[in-house]
Design a protein around this nucleic acid. Structure first.
Lengths: 156, 156
DNA sequence: TATTGTTATACTCTATAACTATA
DNA sequence: TATAGTTATAGAGTATAACAATA
C-alpha cells in the first residue's frame, strides 16, 4: 500500500528524468565551453573518432538517434570540416566516416574532459555500485525494447 | 586502463540517456493513447492531483521545469479546463492550483496505468536493486546540483 | 527591491514520412 | 523491391531574459 500511494514525483522514471536532465545540462555546458559543440554533435564526433571508417548506419544504431537526426547533425560537422565523408568503393550507397585533422584535434582535446567527467561520476559510487546500476539500466532497456514495438495498451 | 579506453558509447551517461529516451517514448505513447496528454502535461496534472492547492512555485521546484516552461504547459491544461487556478487570498502573487472535475476524472483514470508502468519496472528488479539504483541516482543528482552552479571547467 | 508568475525569442530536439540514389 | 542516406515539416522541449503585478 505504501508503494500504491507513492507520490508521482517519487516514481523511478521521474527521478531518472531529473538526473538525466541535469547530466545533459552539465555535459552541454562543458562541451560548449571546451569544444563549441552541442551534445548531439559530440556524440557523433566521438562515435566517429572511436570507430573510424564506420558506416553511418552502424553509428545510427549505436546511438539513440534515428537516421534523419543523425544525418542533419552530421551535416553540421561536415560543414565545419570536422568530419570527412567518403563513399564506399564497393557499395556506393554507403558512407564511410572519418575525422578530419582538425576534427581529430578537437576530439583528442575534448575526450579527456569527458572521460574525467565519467571518472568523477564513477568515483561517487561504491564498489559494485556501478555494475549494479548498469545492470538495472540494461534490464530496463531490454524490456523497453520489447515493449516499444507493441501497441500502447499492451503495457498498461 | 580498460576503463581509460572504454568506448564512448559505453559511458554511464550514454546508457542513461538511451534508457531515458526509451522511457520517454513509452510514457508518451501510453499517455497519448490513454489520456491525450503530453508527458509534460501529465507531469503537471499529476503533481497538482497529488498536491491539491499547492503553489505553482513549489510544483516548479519539484519538477525539473523552470517557471517559464511550467507556466506555458499549465496554460494548456487551464485552457482545456483540466486545472482550476485561484489566487491566494493572503498573497495575491501566489496561484493555488487544483484539478477541475474533468481533470480529476482524467487523473483518476490515468494514474493507475502510470502506476502499473512503475510496478512493471520495479518487478524487473531483484530485492534491494531498486534501493541501490535510486541511491546511485540520488548521489549523482546531489553532486550535479553542486556542480551546475559552478563554471564549466570546474568539473573537468 | 524581491518574488510570483507571464510572455517573447530563438534555438534544439523529436517524430514521421516523403524522397533520391544505389543495389 | 530493399537499403543507405537526405530532406521537409511540424510539434515539443529548452534556455534566457524582459516584463507586469504584488509584496
Amino acid at each position: 500500500m505504501s508503494e500504491e500511494t507513492a507520490p508521482v514525483h517519487r516514481f523511478l522514471t521521474y527521478r531518472l528524468a531529473r538526473v538525466q536532465s541535469k547530466l545533459n545540462a552539465q555535459a552541454s555546458k562543458l562541451l560548449r565551453a571546451k569544444a563549441g559543440l552541442s551534445l548531439a554533435q559530440w556524440r557523433i564526433l566521438s562515435l566517429i573518432g572511436g570507430n573510424p571508417g564506420t558506416r553511418a548506419t552502424d553509428l545510427t544504431r549505436i546511438s539513440t538517434m534515428d537516421k534523419g537526426q543523425f544525418s542533419r547533425k552530421l551535416k553540421t560537422l561536415v560543414d565545419d570540416r570536422l568530419v570527412v565523408v567518403s563513399v564506399d568503393p564497393q557499395d556506393h550507397r554507403i558512407l564511410r566516416l572519418r575525422l578530419s585533422d582538425s576534427g581529430q584535434v578537437l576530439y583528442d582535446r575534448t575526450l579527456p574532459h569527458m572521460r574525467k567527467r565519467q571518472a568523477d561520476l564513477k568515483a561517487l559510487l561504491g564498489p559494485g555500485e556501478e555494475e549494479a546500476f548498469l545492470g538495472v539500466l540494461d534490464k530496463i532497456e531490454q524490456t523497453l525494447e520489447r515493449d516499444l514495438s507493441r501497441p500502447a495498451d499492451a503495457s498498461g
